[in-house]
Simulated scan of single mutants.
Amino acid sequence: MKATATAHPIEGLVKYHGMRDPDLRLPYHDSISVCTAPSRTITTVEFGGDEDVYVVDGDRVDGRGAERIDAVVDHVRDRAGIETGVRLESENSFQSNVGFGSSSSGFAAAATALCAAADLDLSLPEISTVARRGSASAARAVTGAFSHLRAGLNDADCRSERIETDLEDDLRIVAGLVPSYKETEQAHEEAADSHMFQARMAHIHGQIAEMRDALRVADFDRVFELAEHDSLSLAATTMTGPAGWVYWQPRTIAIFNAVRALRDEGVPVFFSTDTGASVYVNTLEEHVDRVESAVADCGVETRVWEVGGPAEVRPESDALF
């Protein structure tokens, strides 16, 4: 009863914000994202023993972090009729808690490994409902590439599906790392308290429809202009909540300005952020060197990513223990 799985983190394109049900992590509205590779999380789990042990990047997880993992583990145990403890170890190939989606790949890899170790024969959309109990964005990391998590009040409705698009091969994502620790859970908890939240809810359904249509016809400019505008909408909502979250840092704004300058020169490029200071800069393969140079000139570390696929079970030789 042991298995290893990997998953790629997500860049939110139309991002979810706030949870209708914080226990099942049911979001208020639909969301769409794209997975980034080769950044990944690898997780090994094994059932057996008397206690649960969770280790992420070499550190024992406790407190709220362990409670979130418990939600996924307990759901799998209930479905499989398992009564033993579990050992779970996870490693990220990229820096976590800086706005690059580590919780999405973390819970996607954990859910996939747990379901395999428990011998549950589930489809990727079904596994996405397991991962969602740890992080709603993890549902989309399970199905991979461009994926759509639908809102709903149950697992039959609130699950992720992959969106087929010809943009998968051409997209390049220049990641501008702005190291500023961020925490998203409280922002989700207070989402509905922002006076901007109802304005966001009023337009989000139309934005989802626009995004799906733009992906269907592989319209790069339309897809990532929508993603850029959604980043600004999300920031307006988080900044006007009770805690007044302001995630962006001076170098975040510098990257925004560099992207807009490149666009004025005719380069197809758009920025996007999740709840964090780091920036995703979306462009096409033929322009990626120029775009990466401009982002690096803002005084940040850069990575160049491509579109990542779905979560997958790995061979025994990849196990972390």
Rank of each mutant, 00 (worst) to 15 (best):
R303E: 14
H195V: 13
A191R: 01
D78E: 15
D57H: 06
A296R: 15
R20D: 05
R314I: 05
V76F: 10
A145P: 00
H17P: 03
G63A: 12
T41S: 14
R68Y: 12
A202I: 02
R60F: 06
P268K: 04
G244R: 11
S31M: 04
A187S: 15
Q95R: 14
S31K: 02
G99R: 09
E225Q: 14
L284N: 04
E185N: 09
T112D: 09
D78V: 04
A136R: 03
G266K: 13
F224S: 03
Q249N: 02
V304P: 09
S128N: 07
F47P: 09
T240G: 06
R172C: 01
D155T: 09
I32Y: 07
A311I: 09
R200M: 00
R60C: 02
E285K: 00
P9V: 11
V55C: 06
L122E: 12
R150V: 12
I208F: 02
D169E: 14
D52G: 08
M201C: 06
E46R: 15
F224M: 07
F197Y: 01
L153N: 13
P268A: 13
R290Y: 01
S160M: 07
T4L: 06
H229Q: 15
V98N: 05
G85D: 14
F100K: 01
A175P: 00
T184F: 08
T36Y: 02
T238C: 15
T44E: 08
A37V: 03
R260F: 14
S102V: 04
N282M: 15
V45L: 12
R68M: 10
S278G: 11
L215P: 02
V269H: 06
Q249W: 00
G308V: 11
V269K: 06
M196P: 02
A187I: 10
L153I: 11
V142S: 03
Q198S: 15
A37T: 10
A261F: 02
R251S: 12
R260L: 14
H188I: 05
A80N: 09
F107T: 02
D170R: 00
M211K: 09
I10H: 12
Y280T: 04
V307H: 00
V45S: 11
V55F: 05
Q198W: 02
G241D: 05
G244M: 09
A7N: 10
M211I: 08
A192Y: 00
E161C: 01
V53C: 09
R172L: 01
E164N: 11
F220N: 00
D157C: 01
E126V: 03
H75V: 07
Q198P: 02
W248N: 01
